[in-house]
Design a protein around this nucleic acid. Structure first.
Lengths: 121, 121
DNA sequence: ACAACTCGTTCACATCGTCGTCACCGGTCG
DNA sequence: CGACCGGTGACGACGATGTGAACGAGTTGT
């Protein structure tokens, strides 16, 4: 595998989640997630800016490669698709957090702990 | 263990499946699988890169030794032939996983885990 | 040489996955 | 409370993949 050692093999880690954009693959606990192209790219862009709030428009630009039309709900829909698959793969964790009026933020957080409503690991 | 291409007695193991390219042989539970040349080579190339997604074009290049014409379905057809024989040899396991839009990924996975449509392993 | 067989390739059709969109519902904030 | 904003399930169109079968070339057995 004589790949250039520089930009290849990017690996993004968000808690127990592992994303390998160059492999078109995301893993959780050694298991590969079955994600579509859009889903993986959205997950990748979110993970690249973990802990930061990303506006829908910015996400759309990064993933779809064009400007988002006002009223387009694609990002919301794909966020949901990702949430469903991530929940199936890693029950008890949540990764994509809504910031009302602003957008989404990626961060690995455990669920059902009364004291973590205002903190992130 | 990354094996050099010319290593003698290369043995590939993917779960309960054992592949001996130099012997032109694949085994499952001590029993030899009846595979044709193409089938064995395809299985071998897939197994050499287990857990990684391989594009059809790459597989075709490795197995057929020439460039794949657009629209050529040979890889698909042989993936099916392998799946049928692997299923017959090892019921309850699946090895060749489709990644829509990208290609195939080799990994030993047990079936009938009830409800995990979103992960493999 | 002939028949029977295996293999590789290609085709046509069936089935499935993905994407974008919509409508409706529930939650959030002023 | 009322106006938005986000969550959610469903749908149709399209393209990708699954699948069975036909075909011809090559091989083996007689």
């Amino acid at each position: 595998m004589a790949l250039a050692a520089n930009t290849r093999s990017e690996v993004l880690t968000v808690g127990p989640l592992e994303i390998l954009p160059d492999e078109h693959l995301a893993r959780a606990g050694g298991r590969a997630l079955m994600l579509s192209i859009r889903e993986l790219r959205l997950l990748t862009e979110l993970a690249r800016r973990a802990d930061r709030i990303m506006a829908r428009e910015e996400l759309f630009r990064l993933v779809w490669g064009r400007e988002m039309r006002t009223g387009d709900r694609s990002v919301d829909v794909y966020v949901r698709k990702l949430r469903v698959k991530l929940e199936a793969a890693l029950p008890g964790w949540s990764f994509i957090h809504t910031h009302f009026g602003f957008g989404y933020r990626m961060a690995a957080e455990r669920k059902q702990h009364g004291n973590d409503r205002f903190t992130t690991d």
